[in-house]
Write a protein that binds this DNA or RNA. Structure first.
Lengths: 317, 317
DNA sequence: CATAACAGTTGCATTATGCAACCAAGTGAG
DNA sequence: CTCACTTGGTTGCATAATGCAACTGTTATG
C-alpha cells in the first residue's frame, strides 16, 4: 500500500483545522438560536431520526452520558423535546421533538443548508462532488471504516466510456512502462472502431461506474478474430477503483457473456510485467500459450497471448 | 451558476458533522497531553509559525481575546511558552515556544500525523488526493475564499490528453445536446489522427493541467485545410475548470501560435447554442461567416463556421 | 494634541463537561 | 430461579472554557 507523503498529510491536517474552526464558528451563531453546539447537534440528530435514545446520542456526539442527560433536561425544559420512558425497555427513554422543537429543527436545517450552499457558491459547480466525496471518505476513514465500493457492472455504450478507457490505459502505461502517444492513439482509434459495431450481437462492452463516471471496463470483440473466437480487449480499472475487486467482477461478467454466446474460446494479448492482471486472467481460466517480443504498442515489450477454452473456470488450487 | 442539489448539501453536512466529531474526539486524547483542544490548536499554530501574536491567535482560533489571554497564561505557567513584550509595538507580545513547548509541539505533530496516516490507510491511495482537495476546497469556501485557479498552459503531447479531450467533449455534448457514440468516436479518431502528425511545425496542441491532469485543451491543425489556413480544433475546457478564464488563456495561446506561424487566416466549426464559446471566439477576433444545418457530429444541429484573419484581435467595444 | 483604534488584562457570570457513585431494569450462566 | 453482570440513565461535585464588559496602556490619525 502506498503511504501518503508527509506533505500531503500536513495539508490535510491544515485543512481539517480550518474546517473545524469554520464550522465551529457557524455553530456558535447557528440560526440565531441561543443553543450550544452540542444542543444543536442533538436537535439535528433527533430531528433527522438518527437518534431515538440518549445512549445513541452519546455515541454519535461523543459525549459522556451524564452530559447528554443534562443536555436533554435543558432541551425538554425549553419545550423542544419530549422524553418518555420507552415501552419496550423501561430503562431507556424515547426522544422526540415537540412541535416547537421540530420547528427549530427546520430552521436549523434551512440555515445550515443556506450556509453550505453559500459556501459552495464560491466554488465552481464541478468541485462540489470533490468536496462531498472528500469529506465523506475522510470522515469514514477517521472512524476506521473502509469505504464500500458501490459499483454496478453495466453494458453497452455510455458517454465517456471511450475516453475513460483511453485515459486509464494512457496514464497507467505511461507511468509504469513509459508508453506514449502511439499507444494512447492506438487504444482510442481501435476502440472507436470497435464501438461502431458494438451493437453486433457477438460484441459487447462492459463497464463499472461510480457516481456516473466510468471507472473500469472490458470489452468482448467477437468479430475481429477467427469465427467462434472471442477477443477480450481493453480490460482496465482506473486508479480510483483498483483493489476493490472490480477487475474480477468485470472479467466474470465478460466471460459470462462469452460463455452464453457459445464462443469456442477466448483470446487476449497482454505483456509481461502486468502481474495483477495475469493473476486475474489465470483465475478466470486463461492460460498463457505464447510469448514473444513485439512492439505493437509503440514500445518493445514481451507480448503474451492468453487463451481460455469455452466454460473454463480457473486453475485448480 | 449551477446550484447544488439539496441532497448533495445534506450529504456534505452529514459528513461535516461526522468529521467534526471524529476530529474532536482525536483532540481530547491528543498525544496524551492534558491540554484542552484550544490549547493544542494554539501550540500548533504558534509552533508552525502561523501565529506570533495573541490577536492573530484569536483570529485563527475564532476565540475572544480574553479567552486567548488566559489560554496563553496557562500555557506559559506550564512552561510551554514565553510571552515577551514586542519590541516594535509595546502593546503587543511575541509568542514563542520554549524548549519543552517545542518538544510537545513535535509530539503533537507526530501523533496527529500518525492519526491521519492511519485513517488514510483505510482508503485506497488514489482517494487521498480527493480527500485533500475536498477538504481544502471546502475549508476555503466556508471562509468565503475563491480558490485560485493555478494552471499553466503547455503545448505538445502529454499522456492522457487525447482521453481528456475526448472525455470533455463526450460528456459535455452528451449532457447538453444528447450527442452520442458517433460524436465521441469522431472526436477520438480524428484527434488521434492529428496527434500522429502534431510534431509537424504547423500543428500544435495546447493544454492546461491542474495537479498533472489535463483540464482544458485546444489544437491548431495547420495541414488539413487550405495552405496558409489554420484550423482551430478541439477547443474545450473541462467541468472542473469552467469559469476560470482558462478558455480565454488557451485561445490566446493558440492564436499567438497561429499569428507567429504566419497563417493568413484561422477557421473553426462549431454550432448554434454554444454561447459562451461564441463569445470567446468573437472576443478573439473570429467572425461568423456561414451557418447551415448539418449532422457531421451525429446529430442535426445548426453548424457555424467562424473565420479570423491574421492578427485580428477582437471586436471593438 | 485630542481622539479613536488597537492589544491585551481582569472581574464576573455562565455553561459545558467529565468523573464517580448511584439506581433501576434487562441479560445470561449455572 | 438466582446471582452476578451489563446497560441506560441520574445526580453531586469539581473544574475548565468561554464571552461580555470595563479597564490599562500604546499607537495611529486628523
Amino acid at each position: 500500500m502506498v503511504k501518503s507523503s508527509p506533505h500531503k498529510i500536513q495539508e490535510i491536517r491544515r485543512a481539517s483545522r480550518r474546517l473545524v474552526r469554520a464550522l465551529g464558528f457557524m455553530k456558535a451563531n447557528l440560526a440565531g438560536t441561543s443553543l450550544s453546539p452540542s444542543a444543536v447537534h442533538a436537535i439535528v440528530e433527533i430531528g433527522s431520526g438518527q437518534a431515538g435514545r440518549a445512549s445513541e446520542l452519546a455515541a454519535t456526539l461523543q459525549l459522556e452520558k451524564s452530559t447528554v442527560s443534562r443536555l436533554l433536561d435543558r432541551l425538554s425544559e425549553k419545550g423542544l423535546l419530549t422524553v418518555t420512558p420507552s415501552a419496550r425497555d423501561k430503562r431507556a427513554q424515547d426522544l422526540e421533538l415537540t412541535a416547537s422543537g421540530a420547528r427549530l429543527y427546520g430552521e436549523i436545517e434551512r440555515f445550515a443548508d443556506a450556509q453550505v450552499s453559500a459556501a459552495l457558491e464560491h466554488l465552481p459547480g464541478s468541485c462540489h462532488d470533490t468536496v462531498r466525496l472528500g469529506l465523506e471518505l475522510y470522515a469514514a476513514a477517521l472512524q476506521g471504516e473502509k469505504p464500500k465500493p458501490e459499483f454496478q457492472i453495466q453494458s453497452g455504450y455510455t458517454p465517456g466510456i471511450l475516453a475513460a478507457v483511453t485515459e486509464f490505459h494512457a496514464l497507467y502505461y505511461a507511468q509504469n512502462f513509459e508508453f506514449g502517444a502511439v499507444f494512447e492513439r492506438k487504444v482510442a482509434t481501435e476502440m472507436a472502431e470497435f464501438l461502431a459495431r458494438v451493437d453486433h450481437p457477438q460484441n459487447e462492452v462492459f463497464y463499472a461506474a461510480i457516481h456516473g463516471r466510468v471507472v473500469g471496463s472490458v470489452s468482448i470483440d467477437g468479430e475481429d478474430l477467427a469465427d467462434g473466437v472471442a477477443h477480450l480487449r481493453w480490460f482496465i480499472v482506473g486508479d480510483q477503483a483498483r483493489g476493490t475487486g472490480m477487475g474480477q467482477r468485470l472479467l466474470a461478467e465478460a466471460l459470462r457473456f462469452v460463455d452464453d454466446m457459445g464462443f469456442a474460446e477466448t483470446q487476449l494479448w497482454t505483456f509481461r510485467g502486468l502481474q495483477a492482471a495475469r493473476h486475474l486472467y489465470e483465475q478466470a481460466g486463461f492460460v498463457l500459450v505464447e510469448e514473444k517480443p513485439g512492439q505493437q504498442w509503440g514500445k518493445e515489450v514481451s507480448e503474451q497471448k492468453f487463451l481460455r477454452p469455452h466454460g473454463a473456470s480457473g486453475a485448480g488450487p
